[in-house]
Amino acid sequence: MDNLHTEISQLIIDTLDLEDMTPADIDPAAALFGDGLGLDSIDALELGVALRKRYQVRLDGDDPSVKRYFQSVNTLVELVRQHSESKA
């Protein structure tokens, strides 16, 4: 895991009150919602707010690619990287 993976895992832990977890506990390829980490729809909204605050990533709920980016830590890293490249 590189720095951005750890950073996003920590953002998930802090934002969603995942008590007693560290970034190492989150498999970057595992599903965040449903069967994997077990996050729910309110977590998705909360995470959207946190990503916007931290990385200025603006998400459109009607955009089908949003669901894909919210699959795992890996896909969120991809989202943040793409966003910072498109700004550069």
Partner: peptide
Amino acid sequence: DEVSPATFS
């Protein structure tokens, strides 16, 4: 600030 959905819920 933006309203936190989790805090509201």
